[in-house]
């Protein structure tokens, strides 16, 4: 189990657009909500009313600030982070029980909640912080790519997508088969220069991030500066008003 499949027929994953994400947390709470009652339920919280409320979340939104090279201008980037369903993830191979596995069919990396012993080694092996331990359940939790939604026949076909993708109000999250070059997500990655996180770690993430686009704050091509005031602005306006009357 802990051995990785040689290949997977599909490479299902997410493409997250950092140029569009506003950091609204919809994907995070929708994920928590679906997955606390779906596969591997629940995601139990600690100290919910107290000083230190915390619990497992399968998707978290970071906020980073990027300075321009001149150190002055900057941009805030909201950065959702969940399991990247890597192609060669050590989180799976280190698992002593076989609870962690990668599905041969679609590449989804899952944890079997019935066999996980909660040793946490897989969370150490994940560079992306995607695995979170559930103290109350005593097992590891991670993004399931909503495996219990995407094939769920109780949903209308258009709802068969991850909870986070369905929720995202800006449409910054995309779901699809990244193994298929012609899929919409693959095209998007190509067009927008989608990239891998920490590629040198060799985990080969399936999920891709689309970079924030270059800012368009320089004058757009074809826009001419407005004429500067030369004291005759009133005249110009009068002429304009005149033209209106003559219908030109």
């Amino acid at each position: 189990m802990t051995a990785l499949p040689q290949t997977t027929s599909k490479k299902l994953g997410l493409v997250i657009d950092l140029d569009t994400c506003v950091g609204c947390q919809a994907c995070a709470t929708s994920c928590k909500e679906w997955n606390t009652q779906g596969y591997s339920a629940p995601l139990a919280d600690e100290d919910t009313r107290g000083a230190d409320p915390h619990g497992p979340w399968l998707n978290r939104i970071h906020g980073y600030e990027v300075e321009d090279t001149n150190g002055k201008d900057s941009r805030v980037v909201h950065f959702p982070r969940s399991c990247l369903h890597c192609e060669t993830p050590a989180c799976v191979t280190v698992c002593p029980t076989g609870a962690s596995y990668k599905r041969a069919e679609d590449g989804i990396v899952l944890i079997n909640p019935d066999t996980c012993i909660g040793c946490k080694l897989c969370s150490w092996a994940c560079p992306y912080g995607a695995r979170e331990y559930d103290v109350q359940e005593g097992v590891m939790k991670k993004c399931t790519l909503c495996v219990d939604r995407i094939y769920n026949e109780n949903f209308e076909p258009e709802d068969r997508q991850p909870a986070c993708v369905k929720a995202c109000p800006t449409g910054a999250r995309h779901f699809g088969d990244l193994g298929d070059e012609n899929s919409a997500v693959s095209q998007l990655v190509k067009e927008r220069g989608g990239f891998d996180l920490l590629p040198e770690m060799g985990y080969k993430p399936t999920n891709k991030y689309l970079p924030p686009r270059a800012k368009r704050d320089t004058p757009q091509a074809g826009i001419e500066a407005l004429p500067k005031g030369d004291g005759s602005a009133m005249d110009r306006l009068f002429k304009l008003a005149d033209r209106l009357l003559s219908g030109n």
């Binding site: 189990m1 051995a3 499949p5 009652q37 779906g38 596969y39 076989g98 596995y101 599905r103 041969a104 899952l110 079997n112 019935d114 066999t115 495996v147 219990d148 094939y151 769920n152 026949e153 109780n154």
Partner: peptide, 14 residues
């Protein structure tokens, strides 16, 4: 790997 656990892909949680 044949030993992937069978999981319920269409649970009706409601």
């Amino acid at each position: 790997m044949s030993a992937e656990p069978a999981i319920a892909l269409s649970p009706k949680t409601w």
